[in-house]
């Protein structure tokens, strides 16, 4: 029975709505607090699980226990990258941005971050550039970008 034809309203009405949360506040967590303190000092931490170091530091190692936090020093390399031509709302960027997964040679995993370079290729050696110490908040954007070494 074609009830949907029978019932056609003069027009289908629509109602606007929006997310009524002003903001979310995310705590770093027990583990993340150490990472945050390290970022403020210009260090990047990894979690040591057995013989393997994971970056970013995994909350839990594969054995379901928190790992030991250790500093990773690199050198960092580009694992994969993409070039962003438009902003989220579809505006064309004047200068395309490079977003890459970068990984230190001494660890597994990798960070996703901006790379500032004229040319980028997989395997390219890069290093982090931090904000001035006074502006750091312990979040991932304390690292401004990675640049070629």
């Amino acid at each position: 029975m074609s009830w949907w034809k029978e019932n056609v309203a003069s027009r289908i009405r629509h109602y606007p709505g929006k997310m009524e949360v002003e903001k979310y506040v995310y705590t770093p967590g027990v583990h993340g607090l150490e990472q945050a303190k390290a970022l403020k000092e210009g260090k990047i931490l990894g979690a040591k699980c057995g013989d393997t170091i994971y970056v970013p530091p995994l909350t839990l190692c594969p054995d379901h226990k928190p790992g030991e936090l250790v500093e990773v020093r690199g050198p960092w390399r580009v694992v994969t990258y993409t070039i962003i031509a438009e902003t989220m709302d579809g505006r064309r960027l004047e200068k395309p941005e490079v977003i890459a997964v970068v990984k230190p040679d001494d660890a597994e995993g990798g960070l996703i971050h901006r790379v500032e370079a004229d040319q980028v290729y997989i395997g390219m050696e890069v290093e982090p550039v931090f904000k001035p110490e006074a502006e750091r908040k312990g979040t991932i954007d304390d690292i401004l970008y990675f640049k070629p070494k």
């Binding site: 949907w4 309203a9 629509h14 949360v21 995310y26 705590t27 770093p28 607090l33 908040k137 312990g138």
Partner: peptide, 19 residues
């Protein structure tokens, strides 16, 4: 807290009332 992240969600919806 160091490392505290604040985020403002921007989500607007249009709900259909249906037939």
């Amino acid at each position: 807290l160091p490392g505290l992240v604040e985020y403002r969600p921007v989500a607007r919806y249009l709900f259909s009332a249906g037939q």
